[in-house]
Amino acid sequence: MKSLILHTATRLMIGVLVLFSLFLFFRGHDEPGGGFIGGLVGAGAFTLYAIAFGTEATRKVLRIHPITLIAYGLLSLVVSGLIPMFMAEPFLTGKWLFIEWGAFDTKLSTPLLFDIGVYLCVVGFIVTVIFSLEEE
């Protein structure tokens, strides 16, 4: 769509939207939020870009094919489920790793990995749908 206002606004908005989606994603760790809703907002950013500049430009911005994104998401889901199996625990058991850096302590966990997978799958799925609809 050729519209100066939309183009300018999109350039500003896309960064904010991606940041907001990441915020929602990390907030989902202990509070409402998470991979699904974060992924939807992230997909919203790319949808906006696709409306403003067309799908070709969006593919370039995204760099990675959306279906490949889904594949990596699925891989991340499977790996997060399989990790506890190597510790002789049932599939999908939550496993935690606490790293203390002094200033900011980090919690790494298999639920985080699972959520990353959900995020990637949602973004990949929505963007695929939007691309196919736009290009039809």
Binding site: L74, L75, G81, P90
Partner: peptide, 21 residues
Amino acid sequence: MNGLLVLPVAIPLITATLALL
């Protein structure tokens, strides 16, 4: 408890992911 019970579901999922990649 038998941890292997998930394999009939997990193996096709892994295969599908690889085939997609």
